[in-house]
Nucleic acid binder design. Structure first.
Lengths: 153, 153
DNA sequence: TCTGAAAATTCTTTGAC
DNA sequence: GTCAAAGAATTTTCAGA
């Protein structure tokens, strides 16, 4: 699964992660190469699935999404049908930014972005009405110390 | 802090979040407008800080970063100096993708991406050697059900 | 695989409505 | 604020080394 990347690939990925709006010329200059090779490598990195998509990062506060919760979920249900419904629900909800199935006594963790505590409660009520859940702990973020999409390459 | 956005702004933001490599013409067509107004709005959304940056999303697996941990941290220290050192440490560590200060009995949560369990342990040892921490619980992700940077607009 | 240049497309600005 | 057009810059392709 892991792609074989050389030093030039890594430099290009670092530049693209830092700022994807840079021109090819600019990236080529910074990584010490020229336009065509950089362009060919980016194309290959896309095809190989290393680069999945290009996007803009928005400021949640500027959109009025001022509350961030991490939700720890324990469930007594472990049947395929239940799990399928739970997954479908999570994927359909735009306020759920992350969802992971965990090892250990906590079964799932979610990261949820909403306008305020009331909006979180609406989400919570909707969730437990759709799927049976044994235990839920919501951790409210007071301060976002760090939040990055930049992976070390 | 929250910017006033109209329907056209929201449509543009949705398109940019979905795929920032689209041309202005394409975005304009999809949102039912034309190039110049779309361009002006994007510029204003940047200036207003709604759009913070443009980036590429990479596949962590393709980079060999196959382990994802959520780390729950309790500390007995609440002095400014300790907190400053802790924050600086987290921000400097590229494997820490998210860090939040929480309300409640758990003080901090981190999201950490590493190659494997051994790499996580190296991170953990480095962290506790740099700052005093009372209690740490690591939750290992078995499956990434959802992971998106797309905020509901 | 890289270099360099040409062709095609897109971005950005301008001025009229 | 919108539209259309034009100049500037960029992306993409394609030879040749």
């Amino acid at each position: 699964m892991a792609a074989r990347l050389d030093d030039l690939d890594r430099k290009i990925l670092a530049e693209l992660q830092a700022d994807a709006s840079q021109s090819l010329d600019e990236i080529a200059r910074k990584v010490g190469s020229s336009k065509t090779p950089v362009w060919n490598r980016i194309r290959k990195l896309r095809e190989a699935g290393v680069i999945t998509r290009q996007t803009v990062i928005l400021d949640p506060e500027a959109l009025g999404l001022e509350a961030c919760f991490f939700v720890l979920i324990r469930t007594s249900e472990h049947e395929a049908e239940w799990q399928q419904r739970f997954l479908t629900t999570l994927r359909a909800r735009p306020e759920v930014l992350e969802a992971h199935r965990l090892a250990g006594d906590i079964d799932y963790i979610l990261k949820v972005r909403v306008a305020n505590a009331r909006a979180y409660d609406a989400f919570y009520q909707a969730l437990i009405s759709e799927v049976r859940i044994y235990n839920v702990t919501a951790l409210l973020s007071m301060e976002e110390i760090k939040s990055t999409t930049i992976l070390p390459v």
